[in-house]
Amino acid sequence: MNFRQLVPAEAWQDLINRGQRRTYRRGSILLSQGESPSSVIALAEGTVKVVQVTEAGDSLTLTLRGAGEALGEMGAILDRPRSATVQAVSACVGYILASHAFRGYLERYQLATAVYRLAVDRMQHIERLRTDLASLPPSARMARVVVHLTREVGRPQGDGLLVELGMPREELAAMAAMSRSSAAPVLSQLQAAGILSLGRSQILVRDTARLELAARAANPRDDHTL
């Protein structure tokens, strides 16, 4: 579920109507980690990635977000610096609303509690995903990450679901707690099995059921779904 699916249709349209329209090229930074939460962006078109820099200085892509999201909503609600950077991985259209106006919008539609709960649930899901990866075999790690991204931003294309990655393979590998060299054969195996097709910056998931089975493998001996 994303923000647009959570709120009534008229509430989403009101958010769009109140915001200032802005277009973003691929690679543009929409929000920066550590900056003041002065505004919220309603993402109407495109896909973005959420990137966090750790205390050690490492940059890690946490997830992708697509159209229908409110970006920067937690900073606006809590009035705290942004916890991550948001970057466009495709051409995007967003509507910018000042944080104080966004808080008033939530009060008007009585959405504050639901929006806060959605944001917390999603953060907890990402933390669980990162924790689970440590105990999974390589193929299940990558399958689990692709399942997550498909649920977040997958859109129908032909007989499958297309995920616009907009990131190099080593970045996708890092999301699965793998090196690029260890991730490459796993992706090739998934492709050879007809579960997905690989593009330069896209993944087309052709068999969601088998991908989810691969993601649930508890150990290498269980990883027989490919």
Results as ranks from 00 to 15, higher is better:
Ala114Lys: 13
Arg155His: 07
Arg103Ala: 02
Glu107Pro: 10
Ser38Phe: 03
Arg108Ser: 09
Glu107Arg: 14
Ser32Ile: 09
Leu118Tyr: 05
Arg128Thr: 12
Ala119Lys: 10
Gly66Lys: 07
Arg144Cys: 05
Leu129Tyr: 08
Ala134Val: 11
Ser28Cys: 09
Leu97Tyr: 02
Arg141Trp: 11
Ser59Trp: 09
Gly57His: 10
Val93Pro: 00
Asp58Leu: 14
Thr85Cys: 10
Leu149Cys: 06
Val145Ser: 03
Glu35Ala: 13
Val51Gln: 09
Glu45Ala: 11
Gly46Val: 11
Ala84Tyr: 00
Glu107Cys: 08
Pro138Leu: 10
Ala84Glu: 01
Leu161Val: 00
Gln110Asn: 14
Gly68Tyr: 06
Val145Arg: 03
Gln52Met: 14
Gly75Trp: 00
Met74Trp: 05
Leu106Met: 13
Ser139Gly: 13
Arg103Trp: 00
Ala76Tyr: 06
Leu97Asn: 00
Ala114Asp: 12
Thr85Met: 06
Val115Glu: 01
Lys49Trp: 05
Gln157Pro: 00
Val51Pro: 01
Arg128Phe: 07
Leu71Ile: 15
Pro156Asn: 11
Val40Ser: 01
Arg80Glu: 14
Gln52Asp: 03
His100Tyr: 08
Ile77Arg: 05
Leu161Phe: 08
Ile77Trp: 00
Tyr24His: 12
Tyr24Gln: 05
Arg26Gly: 06
Pro137His: 08
Thr47Ala: 09
Arg108Asn: 12
Val51Cys: 14
Ala42Lys: 03
Glu55Phe: 11
Arg122Val: 02
Asp121Trp: 00
Pro37Gln: 12
Arg65Pro: 00
Leu129Asp: 07
Leu30Trp: 02
Val89Thr: 15
Arg144Gly: 02
Ala84Gly: 05
Leu118Ala: 03
Glu45Gly: 05
Gly158Leu: 08
Ser39Val: 09
Leu78His: 09
Arg25Thr: 05
Leu149Tyr: 09
Tyr105Trp: 15
Glu73Ile: 03
Ala114Asn: 06
Asp159Lys: 11
His125Arg: 14
Val93Ala: 11
Gly72Arg: 03
Leu161Asp: 03
Ala42Val: 10
Gln110His: 13
Leu64Asp: 01
Ser139Asn: 09
Ser39Ile: 04
